[in-house]
């Protein structure tokens, strides 16, 4: 059992670190929540399963400066750690990475949508199915039905970097060439349709900055130009222009850095597919520079470097 193995590792690691970051049950049976473990007796509360959706690696930059942190990462989350190391944003000496091979998590939103947003009394998982109990009774949902988009094209079920691995490695079983199929599909729409799509989606934005603050790579959030008056990039207005501008800032600042954890989409309270914006740029990075963020520790993000002769960039004619 992964959870037993995981608890064993945490017990072993805990004496040497200030905190172990894992998951525990949140306010209801459907919600897990990040769990900061400092005492051995707390380890029992640790949980692991398809409800453990958060990218816990995102806590590392602010903590590893002066504390020693152990963090539980899924395969997708592990790209965050690699990217931090590429950009020198964490202190590896102060970081213990507990990897968990993961066969997929759920989208809390999709589950709730399937259940008409009722409070969830119990959740039980069984292979590729979860059964959710509400005051109205039980409902079984297939995992594939309620999995977040990122799991559907997952290439890294096993963490790419770890100090301890809780469980046996899992091989990817999704075709690598279809990762960006949704982007290609979207690009079949006309320019006008795309503009209208984003205008509609982004019109719901309330500028709460959950997508920014949950983003592991948005590392300058306290100094974000979306709020700064000096420089004065944006107004505090809530109109379409400013909403689009904010999301363009977010996307462009992540060019070649987005590790595709899709936390931005997961946390958006008004259900904007925020990660879909970045995915296009990620596809470009793969096609233009053969680069995927957070895959190798020794890689250099493509916007941080150049080639004198770029193989894939051609002069544009007018």
């Amino acid at each position: 059992m992964t959870i037993e193995r995981l608890k064993e590792i945490v017990h072993k690691v805990l004496p040497d670190v200030d905190v172990v970051i894992g998951y525990r049950q949140g306010f209801d049976a459907l919600h897990a929540t990040p769990f900061f473990i400092t005492k051995p007796e707390e380890v029992d509360e640790l949980i692991w399963g398809p409800l453990c959706v958060h990218n816990l690696a995102a806590y590392l930059p602010s903590l590893t400066k002066n504390k020693k942190i152990a963090v539980i990462v899924k395969g997708c989350d592990s790209r965050t750690v690699n990217q931090y190391l590429q950009e020198n944003l964490i202190n590896r000496e102060n970081t213990v990475i507990i990897g968990i091979p993961c066969s997929g998590v759920i989208s809390v939103k999709k589950v709730l949508k399937g259940l008409g947003d009722q409070p969830i009394e119990a959740v039980s998982g069984d292979g590729d199915k979860i059964t959710v109990t509400t005051s109205q009774g039980d409902k079984a949902l297939s995992l594939s039905e309620v999995s977040p988009d990122k799991c559907r094209t997952c290439q890294y079920p096993t963490p790419l970097i770890y100090d301890h691995l809780a469980g046996d490695p899992i091989s990817p079983d999704k075709p690598a060439e279809s990762v960006y199929d949704d982007v290609r599909e979207f690009e079949k729409l006309s320019l006008g349709e795309r503009w209208h799509y984003w205008e509609t989606e982004l019109s719901r934005c309330i500028r709460c900055y959950a997508c920014r603050n949950a983003c592991p790579m948005c590392i300058c959030q306290d100094k974000c130009i979306a709020e700064s008056r000096d420089p004065h990039w944006m107004t505090q207005r809530l109109n379409g222009t400013e909403k689009l501008m904010y999301h363009m800032i977010h996307a462009l600042h992540l060019a070649g850095r987005c590790v595709e954890c899709e936390e931005c989409t997961r946390v958006c309270p008004v259900e904007i597919p925020v990660a879909k914006i970045k995915k296009k740029i990620n596809m470009e990075m793969a096609e233009l520079f053969g680069y995927k963020a957070g895959v190798g520790v020794e890689d250099t993000p493509p916007m941080f470097t150049f080639k004198v002769d770029e193989e894939k960039i051609e002069e544009h004619e007018l």
Partner: peptide
């Protein structure tokens, strides 16, 4: 090397804009 960096960034943008509906 300033324009080498510019080339990468601007190419990225050039390909990205139509995704958002800007020609």
């Amino acid at each position: 090397e300033g324009n080498f960096y510019a080339r990468r960034r601007l190419e990225m943008l050039k390909q990205f804009l139509p995704y958002m509906g800007i020609d």
